[in-house]
Design a protein around this nucleic acid. Structure first.
Length: 423
DNA sequence: ATGCTCCTGCGAA
DNA sequence: CTAACGTTCGCAGGAGCAT
């Protein structure tokens, strides 16, 4: 039962290029929030040796010497482009899992196996024509193998023109490919597990694939055991269908500059709670816990460090006011004077579908109905007029904690006002 | 012993 | 001029608690 993994190449950079062709062929990086570190690199930048996650301040000098163009991230643009890609892909399979902003699994069960490569090429061309974005397609019998096939398609290791189907390779050919791949290329094998595997003499994908699942389970976990099975074509990781509501919702951000006052933290927490509550209502869920956390800058070791979180249980709700009130209670409990705070966040937990909670003797049903109406109006206005048009007063207007984004591209696809004027 | 909730570690993009 | 290092999600497994 073949599965395809479609992955956009250098997604954020490609989105920027789709609207600004002058960036084509040039070295381009996209930076994380606060222009902190590299989160997307064009091939030219990768060739210059810039690593994923490298902090901007460390590479700035080098970057300027080599004419690297650095852009702040523009999530409104990437999110919109992602939605277009996913929508197009939905035409290519009855079952689709949107795995991340730039990746999508497609269930190709029942499709003629000998023509899957051609099908992959069609997917590539269609996405390119309709969005301008380059994608690669990996095809194999399990999700883990499809990820690996996609990697091969990107590197041109097997297959051609951005499509690789492991189902078309012989056992010998597969063995050769797997022996050439370092074990850390496997989905689920990160830094820590790579180190431990290497100390056991397992350096390549082939070595992991041929090791004993029982031993791996003993020394590591059931997760890595499943990975070994998946590498052998035994499907253990199901396709997650769309529309499954999230189990937790997190909104957090580092600040553009540090803050010390409770007031500033309250503003940020209020703002984050509002964003989180919007997501919650979009999912049709309610939250039974609000977790708040604040922390100083761990990289500034000379400063006194503080890092705390607290969970505030509430009667499950999706009402921004109630969630914010709970968040404020939590914040006041963990706030300590005298620290340079760099980041805060709000997590909504114990989520469940709305209308399925235990009732309580003291529920005010009429008030709940009025609150629902208020929230609907708030969401509608914010959707129509742009995020943050209406917020609770506690979100504040000083926003000393706001992000730095010094070189953001226009919101080409979501804000009329930001379209460049052509004379 | 068993089952729960909470918290931490890990990995992914 | 200087200092400057992301965000969001899920899973597993251990700790701690109650039964």
């Amino acid at each position: 039962m073949p599965i395809a993994l479609v992955d956009c190449n250098n997604f954020y950079v490609s989105c920027e290029r789709a609207f600004n062709p002058k960036l084509e062929g040039k070295p381009v990086v996209v930076l994380s929030n606060n222009d902190g570190c590299a989160v997307a690199r064009s091939n030219e930048v990768k060739a210059l040796g810039i690593k994923m996650g490298e902090p901007w301040f460390k590479m700035e000098k080098f970057a300027k010497q080599h004419g690297i163009i650095a852009l702040s991230s523009n999530y409104a643009l990437y999110g919109d482009m992602s939605a277009r890609v996913m929508s197009i892909l939905s035409n290519f399979s009855p079952r689709q899992e949107m795995y991340s902003i730039d990746e999508c699994f497609l269930d190709l069960a029942g499709f003629p196996e000998e023509s899957l490569i051609a099908y992959g090429l069609t997917i590539r061309q269609t996405i390119k024509r309709h969005t301008g974005l380059p994608v690669c397609v990996g095809i194999a019998s399990t999700k883990t193998l499809a990820k690996l096939a996609n990697h091969c398609a990107k590197k041109g290791l097997a297959g051609e023109e951005g499509v690789c189907d492991f189902g078309r390779l012989s056992d010998d050919e597969l063995g050769t490919v797997f022996s050439s791949l370092p074990v850390n290329e496997v989905w689920g094998v990160g830094r820590r597990i790579t180190e431990k595997l290497q100390s056991m003499g397992i350096h390549t994908v082939q070595a992991l694939r041929t090791s004993s699942p029982e031993l791996i389970r003993q020394r590591f976990s059931i997760v890595l055991e499943r990975t070994v099975l998946e590498l052998n074509g035994v499907s253990c990781i199901e396709l997650d269908q769309v529309g499954v509501p999230q189990q937790q919702i997190l909104v957090s951000r580092s600040f553009g500059q540090t803050v010390t006052a409770l007031d500033d933290l309250m503003e940020s927490i209020s703002f984050f709670t509002t964003r989180a509550a919007e997501k919650l209502r979009r999912d049709g869920s309610v939250a039974g816990n609000v977790c708040v956390y604040v922390r100083t800058n761990p990289f500034k070791e000379s400063d006194p460090q503080y890092d705390r979180s607290i969970v505030v249980p509430i009667i499950a709700t999706d009402d921004t006011s109630k969630l914010t009130h709970a968040a404020m209670t939590g914040l006041k409990a963990i706030y300590r004077i005298g620290y340079q705070y760099k980041k805060s966040g709000v997590m909504l937990m114990a989520l469940e579908p709305k209308g399925q909670q235990q009732g309580s003797l003291f529920d005010d049903v009429a008030e709940d109905g009025r609150a629902d109406q208020r929230m609907k109006v708030m969401d509608a206005i914010n959707q129509r007029m742009g995020k943050g048009s209406i917020t609770l007063a506690s979100s504040g207007i000083k926003q000393r904690w706001a992000m730095r984004r010094e070189n953001k591209s226009p919101n080409y696809t979501t804000e009329w006002g930001e379209l460049p004027v052509v004379m």
